[in-house]
């Protein structure tokens, strides 16, 4: 599982204090919300059956995060750091190759 979108932040969120925020609430780092791992929210995650996948990319287009990333072979897979487990990809998959599997402890 690649995390190619992951960005090195200057400082973690927990260590940032209010004194360090610029006047006027300016945020100089675009897309810094990537440091927040929303993947902790999910209770289920999608699993691709590669034999039935036609690599159309519909799952990638309907993901409200983008938590679906393309692997080198052209297949798609979820990004475990950001997938919230909504199941939209499984519902919209053309061939029905995505199944939602409950998270394990």
């Amino acid at each position: 599982m690649t995390t190619k979108f992951r960005m090195a932040l200057r400082k973690p969120l927990e260590e940032t204090t209010w004194q360090e925020i610029e006047l006027g609430g300016l945020l100089r780092e675009p897309g810094s919300a990537r440091a927040y791992r929303v993947g902790d929210w999910r209770s289920q995650h999608p699993v691709w059956t590669k034999s039935r996948c036609i690599r159309c990319g519909v799952c990638w287009t309907v993901c409200p995060e983008p938590a679906i990333i393309e692997e080198p072979g052209g297949y798609f897979d979820m990004d475990p750091d950001y997938c919230k487990g909504c199941g939209t990809c499984a519902r919209e998959c053309v061939t029905g190759c995505i199944t939602m599997v409950p998270e394990e402890e």
Partner: peptide
């Protein structure tokens, strides 16, 4: 074709929207 749509994301992951 879904695959041909631009890949650059301008609204990045990590936002706190509800599931789905």
């Amino acid at each position: 074709a879904s695959r041909l749509m631009p890949r650059q994301e301008y609204f990045t992951m990590g936002h706190r929207a509800c599931q789905g």
